[in-house]
Nucleic acid binder design. Structure first.
Length: 750
RNA sequence: GGGCGGCUAGCUCAGCUGGUUAGAGCACUUGCUUGACAUGCAAGAGGUCACUGGUUCGAGUCCAGUGUCGCCCACCA
């Protein structure tokens, strides 16, 4: 349950670099890599290709302009009185138009198919073609075709063997193909073109038009489709395997509904444009020879010669493009373990059991790890993908530097410590759901670490001067906390196994705070300070407290690694010959659950009920907290009597009553101060400043409440519930009814 | 245009394969110089589990639909 800091790795290390080269070479050899011309997403600011995933779409309000393209007359000149109108949101791209498309069945344009329109400014002849892809209802029903600058147009152009003319340079300025607009930025050019069309009377209309626009994930610049030669990975076959792994359960994704999201993406995946025109990253290990041959090599020093024509290495030139960073990241689960070598780490730790990350990089990272891991090793890189949600600010906004709503971990660490932060992040969450990180939550974590620290201070500080061999039987409190610990350990272990991290954290928090600190430690004070106790008995009592603390430290170590380790060291130092093991929690094995003690638990349940009842009575009756009042207790039966006897001192201390008189017989009917009643015992608080009438009405109210509960259960047990529901469920309700009836008898002195 | 998720106490959120009196933390009320801790202790108050219908002995939980907020995916000029 701890991080292994001996295995640090950076994706630019040689270990990763070699894995990248080898993986790419194998993909190349398998025919899954190709280099070809295609329309890719280009960021004109970053000056690089980006993948579909890095092209983030945003809804924006644009404009749809309608532009007239005059038709060609028989003599080749534009006809001033005949035109075809096209609709576009990007007028500047018209400089790259090579056709106009209409739907083949569109009556309006059928006669025009086969004729030509003339491109404004440049005078290029544009064939008018018919294509099913054109939506007759949109715009004018006629589309300008710009193959080099629009994905749809590019596909259409391929179908009709139309040329593609690039008119924007790498920074999205009009290039030399753009005639008079050469050198202008794309948006300047747009305005200039519109102005000129307006002058010419060929701008037929403009209207607001909602549209989705792709932006560079890194810098926000509007992405430009750009025709270029790029490296691609053919991902279909990889995706099919990765999809089957999840479908067939070899890898499961938590929460499970993300499996559908994953599947949808894998089913609709496009080839991965994996090259980047940046300088920081792993360079693609491909070499070109003057004859245009490509050699891919996984050797650190590159190939010795061209794989096809044998030209020597010094005549080859390495590709300058680098890999998309997610390519090396996708190899992470295997590259960190030494792949492609068959290292001991790889043999031992691959595949990984659980991969944890936030859902926002399911496609970027998890999907790539699955595809590349399966391709490289033949097995899934992990059995379970645990997707956490994202941390948001107190009002639910995504944290971002520009918004300034980021919680700086380092400042938080200085303020409340790493443990408190970690605890706050783990508690009260569920996989796949975002969480808001608030001051109150962080404070909660801090308070808990503080609580733990103070509990430890108390326990370690109350070690007897003379620590000797333990003597005497364990007290009820000792047996009880031991049993509760056994249960907590068992449940915490199960929850960790089930990856129910938040439930685990809440459980251990509850056990440590409520069971151990609030109840047990208060009782341990009684045992530790018991007058007349021998050194052996005191030593036994202290060891019980210390062992409970130690067990809690172990259970909490995964979520509070630092404070538990620190306290553990002090426990070890204070042990005085008890040889606490191990010396360090971080390398300690997870604790195994001890055995339960049902007798102690049921006895303590009676005692706790009486304490709660008396406390409640005191508060409601306005008894000063400092006042010690006499108490008379009447147990319901022999077992309850034993319980009260064993817990008599705890009762006195925690309920602040003295003396406590334990009686065998029931009430004598003349005890107006009666207050507390439970299924196990009734308790009379003596000398309370309570008016008799108040006490009587309280007693009457309590009795009425009990009768209502009894009636409700009796009614329930009279229905089909008693015959149709499973026996244990019915039995539980019967027991509940019996408890209420017993309590009513005690209360009314019956 | 598809798909997914949230809607539970004043706030932020848990609630696994349906089990009958729905939990936590914070906030709130009332007491506490209780020899570990006021970053604390004790006792409380607070919810028709968004809505409608259905299945069931039993529904926060399962099914159908509605509303609302949010997210993801998507090459319609």
């Amino acid at each position: 349950a701890s991080a292994d800091w001996s295995r640090l790795r950076f994706t630019m290390d040689e270990g990763s670099a070699r894995a990248v080269r080898v993986a790419f070479k194998r993909l190349w050899d398998a025919g899954l890599v190709y280099r070809g011309e295609a329309l890719v997403n280009w960021c004109p600011r970053c000056l690089t290709t980006i993948s579909d995933l890095e092209n983030v779409h945003r809804d924006e309000m644009g404009t749809l302009w309608t532009i007239r393209y005059h038709l060609e007359r028989a003599d080749g000149t534009p006809d001033p009185d005949a035109w075809i109108s096209v609709a576009t949101t990007r007028p500047e791209t018209l400089l790259g138009d090579t056709a106009v498309a209409v739907h083949p069945d569109d009556e309006r344009y059928r006669a025009l198919v086969g004729r030509h329109a003339i491109l404004p400014f440049l005078g290029r002849l544009l064939p008018i073609v018919g294509d099913d892809a054109v939506d007759r209802a949109f715009g004018t029903g006629a589309v300008k075709i710009t193959p080099a600058h629009d994905p749809d147009d590019y596909e259409l152009a391929k179908r009709h063997s139309l040329p593609a003319i690039t008119v924007l340079d790498e920074a999205a300025r009009i290039n030399a193909e753009g005639g008079e607009f050469f050198g202008r930025d794309r948006y300047e050019a747009r305005e200039a073109i519109l102005d000129r069309l307006r002058e010419m009377g060929d701008l037929e209309g403009e209207e607001p038009h909602p549209m989705v626009v792709g932006h560079c994930e890194r810098c926000g610049t509007v992405v430009e489709p750009r025709l270029s030669v790029q490296w691609f990975i053919r991902v279909k076959p990889l995706a099919e395997r990765a999809l089957a792994s999840v479908r067939e359960g070899r890898t499961r994704i938590l929460p499970a509904h993300f499996e559908k999201v994953y599947a949808h993406w894998m089913e609709n995946i496009h080839d991965w444009a994996v090259g980047r025109q940046l300088w920081w990253g792993h360079r693609i290990p491909a070499w070109f020879c003057p004859d245009g041959h490509i050699t891919v090599s996984d050797a650190l020093e590159g190939p010795a010669s061209c794989a096809e024509c044998g030209r020597p290495a010094n005549e080859l030139r390495q590709e300058t493009d680098i890999f998309d960073t997610w390519f090396s990241s996708g190899l992470w689960p295997i590259s960190t373990l030494g792949w492609p070598d068959e290292t001991p780490d790889f043999a031992r730790f691959h595949p990984t059991t659980v991969m944890e990350t936030a859902y926002d990089i399911l496609f970027f990272w998890v999907a790539r790890m699955m595809m590349l891991g399966l391709f490289c090793t033949g097995v899934e890189p992990f059995q379970t993908v645990y997707l956490s949600g994202m941390i948001r600010d107190p009002i639910g906004q995504k944290m971002s530097k520009t918004k300034g709503n980021v919680v700086d971990p380092l400042e938080t660490l200085d303020e409340i410590g790493a443990d408190a932060l970690r605890f706050a992040l783990v508690i009260g969450t569920s996989p796949g759901n975002d969480q808001r990180l608030t001051k109150a939550k962080l404070d909660g974590g801090r308070n808990f670490t503080n609580k733990l620290w103070n509990a430890a201070r108390f326990v370690l500080g109350s070690r007897p001067e003379q620590l000797v061999a333990s003597d005497g039987e364990p007290t009820l409190a000792e047996r009880w906390i031991h049993s509760r610990l056994a249960e907590a350990t068992e449940r915490a272990t199960r929850q960790l196994d089930d990856l129910e991290l938040s439930a685990y954290a809440a459980l251990v928090h509850e056990f440590a705070w409520t069971d151990y600190c609030d109840w047990y430690l208060e009782m341990a004070k009684v045992d530790l300070r018991r007058p007349g106790a021998t050194d052996g008995e005191r030593s036994r009592a202290w060891r019980a407290a210390r062992d409970g603390l130690a067990a809690i430290l172990q259970l909490l170590h995964p979520i509070l690694p630092f404070v538990t380790e620190e306290i553990w060291a002090r426990v070890v130092a204070t042990d005085a010959g008890d040889a606490i093991r191990p010396q360090l929690l971080i390398t300690a094995p997870w604790p195994t659950a001890g055995s339960r003690d049902p007798a102690a638990e049921s006895e303590m349940a009676v005692v706790l009920e009486v304490i709660r009842g008396v406390r409640n009575l005191r508060t409601e009756s306005g008894v000063p907290a400092s006042a010690r009042l006499p108490l008379t207790v009447v147990p319901a039966d022999a077992a309850a009597r034993d319980a009260i006897e064993h817990g008599l001192d705890y009762l006195g201390a925690l309920a602040r009553v003295a003396p406590v008189d334990l009686q065998t017989s029931g009430a004598d009917g003349d005890r107006p101060e009666l207050v507390a009643s439970t299924a196990g015992a009734a308790a009379w608080l003596g000398g309370a400043p309570v008016e008799s009438s108040d006490a009587s009405s309280r007693q009457a109210a309590n009795a009425a409440h009990l009768r209502r509960g009894i009636e409700r259960l009796e009614a329930l047990l009279a229905t089909d519930f008693a015959t149709r529901a499973p026996a244990p469920v019915v039995e539980r309700e019967r027991a509940r009814l019996a408890d209420l009836q017993a309590e009513l008898r005690l209360l009314t002195g019956g």
